[in-house]
Design a protein around this nucleic acid. Structure first.
Lengths: 179, 179
DNA sequence: TGCAACTACGCAACTTGTTGCATATGCGTT
DNA sequence: AACGCATATGCAACAAGTTGCGTAGTTGCA
């Protein structure tokens, strides 16, 4: 159950409502652990009953009330335990690679279009990551201690997307050679 | 439901029992879509009742009987439909990147050890992929039509592992600079 | 005035995958 | 004879995530 840990990491940075978390996941941590608001609310409710987080009901004017969750000492202990325990290799499922294996059964033009679409998606994410890096980490050699991790995570994202683009280019080249 | 499609791809290559598929997944297609034998048997049973595959009971001597599954025309149609429909971007969940974000809360030595372990795992998989490439695709410029896809998929795996190693090295360097 | 978009929370049904266990045969080793 | 290992199949309980829907107030715009 790693969404739990992703939420703990996010709440350790600062307290947030379920809604805030959902947006935070869309913007940053969710690049590595996507989560829908439904799933976040569900897990948050269980975490509250497990005392890993504590809710504080905040009335707002002009907006619905919200429940602001903060990490508890139990939560921090759980987070530390998770960090200390080496995680086993996560299973990466790459739908696209499965499709690739069946390339000879597919329509070449449709497949090429899909590869190009995929390449564009990688390029878009890469641009977003690079913009984040320029904005938040302009000087990586002089980072605050709690910024090194987020920066390294972002670097990983950049590598993944660049690798994805290169893979697409290699595929397009191979497809081109066939045509 | 993509395990279904991975199984169809595998059975389109050639018929197999659940046990065969499980081993095939361990060795090749499972690098991109891991699956346990329990899950494979479960999905196969449903696929049989959906007429996507047909089972043939084969008695063996010296071994338990087995059920050899072959793809049906309906299965081939489903496979073609899946190939033609652009798949949306799969959600990649990177446990490790979530941990990285909480780096400042972790024990530096334990974390370094985990990164090194992760690097070793990437290196091991990379070596296996490169051995496969050398063995099965010694001459990529002259590949049979149905071998291009599997080769490109393997190339993707190689890229992923190489990228993973480089990321680990970047992290180790950053951790070293701190110490 | 109406309608879309944003904030804010959540339930219910379903699908997918994991974990632990059970069963059976036959081979080779100790 | 006992044990582990490979072959071969599967069930049951559980965990995690997806999809579709529902509620309710506020803001801004056309």
């Amino acid at each position: 159950m790693a969404l739990e840990h992703a939420i703990l990491v996010s709440l350790a940075e600062r307290a947030a409502s379920g809604y805030d978390l959902a947006r935070r996941f869309d913007a940053s941590i969710g690049h590595f652990w996507p989560a829908s608001h439904q799933q976040i609310y569900k897990v948050l409710a269980r975490m509250e009953s497990d005392k890993l987080v504590a809710a504080d009901l905040v009335a707002q004017d002009g907006r619905p009330d919200k429940k602001v969750y903060a990490i508890t000492d139990d939560g921090r202990a759980e987070l530390r335990a998770w960090l200390a325990k080496p995680s086993r290799r996560e299973a990466t499922r790459i739908d696209f690679a499965v499709k690739l294996r069946a390339l000879h059964l597919a329509d070449p033009d449709a497949f090429r279009a899909e590869v190009e679409q995929r390449r564009a998606a990688h390029a878009e994410l890469l641009a977003a990551y690079e913009a984040s890096e320029a904005k938040y980490f302009p000087n990586p050699s002089a980072l605050a201690a709690d910024q090194i991790g987020p920066w390294l995570a972002l670097r990983g994202g950049i590598r993944v997307e660049r690798g994805g683009i290169e893979w697409c280019d290699e595929i397009l080249q191979a497809l081109g050679a066939v045509t």
